[in-house]
Design a protein around this nucleic acid. Structure first.
Lengths: 207, 207, 207, 207
DNA sequence: GATGAATGAGGTTTCATTCAT
DNA sequence: AATGAATGAAACCTCATTCAT
């Protein structure tokens, strides 16, 4: 009575993983559905069963990426209460997440490029900008908390948040470009220092 | 019977300008040669006269971008001798250049994505990484000069250079995403402050 | 452990009914097996249990259509002995049958188109032409009887039969096209009059 | 300066002719674009240059069919003033037109089936019904003229027109089915007689 | 008996590139 | 030198059919 029983969720994940590998190899533009099907070990038809179009596959992979990144970041920062530590961990977690699977960082900027709003109104990853705005707001919240605790200088917290994310993205890009070392710990350390040394009230400074 | 005299260089530039507009509208992936031909007001055949292939067109536009950016940056920094000022101007000039023509910033990350080395060895803009390395070296040179003059803390100058470029790129991305204001002066100011406040020796500090 | 007892005949009919609805909605070309399965409330596998292929389903529906039409026509004409009445009833019965289920008339011309012999020798409904020939023969028989009884003019009875069926089909088509009213009684009346007034010996005429 | 010069109109016609041949061979459903391209002696790309989609090709061929039929019918009836003659010629011209090119009559009922309004609102040849209504109106006009001249019985002229077209279509169908002879003269004669004998006032009849 | 997940052959469509004019 | 009509390789996607459960 019941047909073949499959864990559709798991198979979807499997395909997404395979897709990310293909994206990393060939770039978001120019990847072929058949390659993803082969990489996932399924037929073309099956691929379309799970993702009704090429765009849906890309969007689906990006959403999965967003969700997993969000969970990872939340888990990393979650228990912490100290703003300084929160920022340090957020930066660290970002690098850990993107470097854990080399395929990710090679594709990150494909996602970024695909998420930029186009003049013609259509952007493949229309959720990127809203998501980014949420991230800025979140980090700005941490900065505000730091200011309230008098750990951070009084600053435009949104601008500070924006710049913190900017350095992370920028360094991520250079890792992809292979102009800096792909060392999560090192990069996080250097960035945190730069960001926080320009932010934290030095002991010998007066408000 | 004298052959029509055409300024090939000028027409090439014309086509490149048109191409950049098309890139901004449709993204690097997904743009069509016919669209560029139409935007440039020339026939498809003529387009191929100037750029023998689609890839050549993309690469040509990117190289033009690099050259112009380089000239712009050199002109901005050229006369200056103070490292602090040099860095300020470099950041400022970057934003001025990219914001002067809105099409540019919408395409910047398409270029970036297209320049990331792929697993399969092939990258459309293979010159991006080397160029980026030269930029890092250049900025590192300025930082070293600042250290020598005892204006900057003793730091890993390559890492510092890398992070300076990182913030610029990262903020550029957010401008494209429309999550921060596209205000060259403001962004340059904020970034310079953050970068330099974490770099410059505070008056009350001792070496 | 006794196998579920199913009335296969009834389920077959159920599927055919559902199929006719789908045909009417999407046309014979372009209908999908899955749509029929859904409309019939069975799985795709089950559908194939009853109709081993798409063509079989179409042919099966058409044969069912033919059989039911034949029974309906026979029942209508059966008891009558007067040729004039037989023709009137035949025409009337045709419209009643096709208009009873709106899905039928919308599909009739799909069946007709699918039954036309193709240059390549293959025709999906290869039984349509033979069946049509039998119908012509039958009507010609009625006409001959009318001639024998001196109710009809001496005519080429095959040609007359052919034209009687032609008007019926033609008006059926216009009902489907919605250029004439879908009123079985009215259409049958008008057609019968035209056909018979051109056939029946007028009272004041001499043989 | 000027590229290859082509008579686009003529090439369009060429492709349409080829398409009609293919339609006749394989039916409207199930014909393949590549077959039309091969039959027309052009590449697949060229075919799409002239007809942007498969549907456009079908619609384009049908429209051409409508236009040519209209011209042919107008030319045939044009000079005549006598309603009886007009109807005779209209019927005659219809058969001449459809039998002149055997491909046409094999495809006529594919067009008819494709023009029937579907439950889902979409009909491939949405112009068929309006066109058919215009034809009915035209013929009704002739019938009215005949009534005014007291050549025809006082009748519902629209109903009469509808039935005249119905017989023509019906017989056309039987020609395609090969159940009656494909003889334009014969069919037109028989139909005209039946139609007019049921319409014309017999000499010995009184109004 | 019933089901629907899986499949891939096959069709439609796009678009970079060529080349006759 | 300039053009755009022609082309076909290559990609996307559909859907009839199968078969493990």
């Amino acid at each position: 009575m019941a047909p073949r029983i499959v864990d559709k969720r798991a198979k979807r994940r499997l395909i997404q993983k395979a897709a990310l590998k293909v994206f990393a190899r060939t770039g978001l533009s120019g990847f072929k559905m058949i390659d993803v099907a082969l990489a996932a070990g399924v037929g073309k038809g099956t691929l379309y069963e799970y993702f009704p179009s090429k765009d849906d596959l890309v969007v689906g992979c990006f959403e999965e990426f967003m969700i997993e990144f969000g969970e990872h970041a939340a888990a990393a920062v979650g228990a912490l209460t100290d703003p300084t530590e929160q920022i340090r961990r957020l930066i660290g977690a970002s690098f850990e997440f993107c470097l854990a699977d080399r395929a990710l960082i090679d594709t990150l900027f494909d996602f970024y490029a695909a998420g930029i709003p186009r003049r013609d109104g259509h952007s493949l990853l229309s959720q990127l900008a809203p998501m980014y705005r949420r991230m800025i707001a979140q980090v700005a919240g941490i900065v505000d908390a730091g200011i309230a605790r008098k750990q951070f200088r009084v600053t435009d917290s949104r601008a500070a948040a924006s710049m913190i994310l900017a350095v992370v993205d920028g360094v991520m890009f250079q890792i992809a470009l292979q102009t800096v070392k792909a060392d999560a710990g090192l990069q996080a350390e250097q960035i945190s220092d730069m960001v926080l040394n320009g932010l934290v009230i030095a002991n010998n400074e007066t408000t």
